[in-house]
Design a protein around this nucleic acid. Structure first.
Length: 653
RNA sequence: GGGCCCGUAGCCCAGCCAGGAUAGGGCGCCAGCCUCCUAAGCUGGUGGUCCGGGGUUCAAAUCCCCGCGGGCCCGCCA
């Protein structure tokens, strides 16, 4: 999963050095099967060098090794005007750069680029990131938190890199789930009250989540009761067990929304065939029935309002909100269906209209569309027998819409791993229906599930931890930690800071783990404030900021570098000069965790340096000025990175 | 039954794509550091059959094969 078009900007010193070394190796060595820059790395700490390359893998004669060392050194001097001593030790080419020359070049480019340090210019590439897209039937929960943080961070990262990014939220308002909610809610609204009145005291999406879950459970109960009537003895026992479970779930919700429960339970349990009614509503909505549509939209807008509040707290914003139903009403979905009917892979699947991919699928197609070799793709049913559409059908239309409407080069769908198969089917459908290029540029950015220890989450049953609860918990913990330090902050300041720290903790932790690892957490784990966390970065930033504030007050200058650069300082400078490369790499590979890991290392180096090296009290002016420049560059890198992570920098903590 | 992913210290994770120097961080635990720029910090110590077994290679946590354990998917749900 990479964005192939992204290239590193060639005028950063770190990237120039890397390129120069790679070029000289390529000149003297036989062609390699992979770009040699991948293997040019920082050596272990006990080796006194800045870059190294494992020459032993190249099987070159000893005499040639010397020649290579000489060429690498000469080319660095020629290409960058940088003196370097290059030696071969233990099969490694070890390159040691002139730290003074390198440092002054680093500071020069840093000061000339200012706030944009680390970007790669404006790339003519449009990327759509669709993420979160939660069903508007319950509040955002832990799984969505991971989705939102990943999606939003990817969008910010690509934007910072220099591509043109548009974020989109798909309002999934068609299908059974939402119809269940409308069915239940309409029973309550029949009494003549408004949603706002009924939900008073609740955050609207939280209340609606309860109503949805309760409706679902009562509908299930209704069906179960009927099944019980004509069940055999053996079956009866099994169903009774299931009933007990349902009763437990319902009782839990009854206690939370007692008034709604009274109305819903009597009405739904009396209903002869709730499923029929749910299907009827759903069909009417797809047809665009005015009454039903206004009812639907009214309810969904309420839930979206709740989503927006939560997302705003997390610093997540969307450029566009797309309604699934619009794609049906404006004929986009019907167009897909008629294209499908004309396609050679159109077939009858279990008596319904569908696509049979077995006719087009082969190894080449699988590779092109990023589908695993061994994966079997079952046929895709496009329509229910009642004539309504299925989600993948609508999503085919939506995929094309995203490409067309945004004039996108890539569309990234941040969607759970469990939807791997339908996502693959959508790519195949695009491929088969005449959009092979779009199919190749539709990326399923998949992430694994988030679970709570000892707790099975279920939206349908109303069992989940909401993002709002998560955030609140994080903020409370941050506040306690903040106030324990005895700062004289008033309540307003204290709350403002702890909100930002709480979000920092949550956002950093959710993107620091690779997306393909399942997360099982307890709330205390996700929120911590020590090393390698969002708050640690915010703290480091605040430290750097206040140092610079003090320096400015004293009228210090930030120019010039000192004669001798000590090893700790040199390490940080090298690290900081790699920042643009890290941005390039994490953007190209769509891996924010690369950036996060880098930031943890940088912050740690800086804190270590900060503790050992006096800055403001350094009596030597040139050394003091260089140190201040280093603090400034650290601060700038942290600032840009925190922006990418959607975490607010704090000037003071 | 088939597929995808994960398995690295008591716990959480990076490294795997692109094989290379004694396998890195963090948490925890133990011992230190605030008359000095923010102690959400810093220093030192503790802790590893890289799930197991084969294979390829000068060299395997990394590549291949066979297993084991866990998660998810295989619906006219999304």
């Amino acid at each position: 999963m990479i964005i192939n078009e992204l290239r590193p900007r060639e005028d950063y010193i770190y990237i120039r050095a890397l390129t120069s070394i790679r070029n000289s190796l390529d000149r003297l060595l036989p062609p390699a099967s992979l770009p040699r820059e991948y293997l040019i790395a920082e050596p272990p700490e006990n080796i006194d060098a800045d870059f190294s390359y494992p020459l032993s893998r190249e099987r070159v004669a000893l005499s040639d090794q010397e020649k290579i060392a000489k060429e690498v050194s000469e080319s660095l001097s020629r290409d960058l005007g940088l003196s370097a001593t290059v030696q071969v030790t233990a099969g490694y080419l070890n390159i040691k750069l002139d730290s003074n020359q390198y440092t002054s070049e680093f500071f020069r480019e840093f000061s000339s680029m200012g706030d944009s340090y680390g970007t790669h210019g404006n790339i003519r590439l449009k990327i759509v990131v669709e993420h979160t897209s939660a069903n508007p039937v319950h509040p955002l929960h832990l799984g969505h938190a991971r989705n939102s943080c990943l999606g939003d961070t990817l969008a910010r990262l690509l934007r910072f890199y220099g591509t043109n990014v548009e974020t989109r939220f798909y309002v999934d308002d068609v299908g059974r789930q939402i119809a269940v909610l409308v069915y239940g809610l309409s029973k309550l609204l029949d009494e003549g009250k408004s949603i706002d009145t009924l939900s008073s005291g609740w955050k609207i999406d939280h209340w609606i989540g309860k109503i949805y879950a309760l409706t679902n459970l009562l509908v299930e109960m209704n069906a179960l009761k009927k099944e019980l009537k004509n069940a055999s003895d053996e079956k009866y026992r099994e169903l009774i067990g299931k009933q007990d479970e349902l009763v437990g779930e319902i009782a839990r919700l009854r206690d939370e929304v007692p008034e709604a429960f009274e109305v819903l339970s009597s009405k739904i349990m009396q209903d002869e065939e709730p499923e029929k009614e749910i299907a009827r509503i759903s069909i009417l909505y797809e047809r665009g029935d005015r009454g039903v549509a206004s009812q639907y939209r009214h309810i969904i807008e309420k839930v979206l309002q709740g989503f927006k509040e939560t997302l705003e707290r997390m610093n997540v914003k969307f450029d566009k909100w797309d309604w699934e139903s619009d794609l049906i009403w404006n004929g986009e979905v019907e167009r897909i269906l008629s294209q499908a009917r004309r396609s050679p892979i159109f077939s009858s699947v279990k008596g319904s209209e569908g696509l049979d991919f077995s006719l087009i699928i082969n190894e080449k197609v699988k590779i092109e569309l990023n589908i695993p070799k061994e994966m079997e793709i079952p046929p895709l049913v496009l329509k229910r027998s009642d004539g309504t559409t299925l989600y993948p059908t609508r999503d085919i239309a939506y995929s094309i819409f995203k490409f067309k409407e945004s004039k996108a080069d890539y569309v990234i769908n941040v969607v759970g791993k469990e939807q791997m198969l339908p996502q693959a089917q959508i790519r195949l459908a695009l491929y088969a229906l005449g959009y092979p290029d779009l199919a190749k540029r539709l990326i399923h950015y998949s992430y694994e599930m988030v679970n709570l220890k000892g707790f099975k989450m279920s939206g349908r049953r109303g069992r989940y931890i909401t993002v709002d609860e998560l955030i609140q918990k994080a903020e409370e913990m941050a506040k306690i930690e903040l106030e324990r330090r005895n700062r004289n902050l008033d309540e307003i300041q204290s709350r403002a800071i702890s909100e930002k720290i709480g979000i920092g903790a949550v956002r950093q932790s959710l993107v620091s783990i690779s997306a393909d690892k399942p997360i099982t957490i307890n709330l205390e784990d996700i929120i911590n404030f020590e090393k390698n966390t969002g708050p640690y970065l915010q703290y480091t930033y605040a430290r750097a900021s206040s140092l610079l504030r003090k320096a400015e007050e004293k009228g210090e200058s930030f120019a010039g570098i000192s004669e001798d650069i000590d090893p700790i300082t040199w390490r940080i400078i090298r690290k900081e000069s790699a920042f643009p490369y890290i941005i390039y790499k994490s953007a190209k590979e769509l891996k924010p965790e690369i950036l996060v890991a880098y930031l943890g290392e940088l912050a740690q180096m800086f804190n270590k340096w900060y503790d050992t090296v006096p800055v403001l009290s350094d009596p030597e002016p040139s050394s003091r000025r260089m140190k201040l420049q280093l603090v400034a560059s650290t601060r700038a890198i942290l600032k840009n990175s925190l922006y990418i992570l959607g975490i607010e920098p704090l000037e003071k903590i």
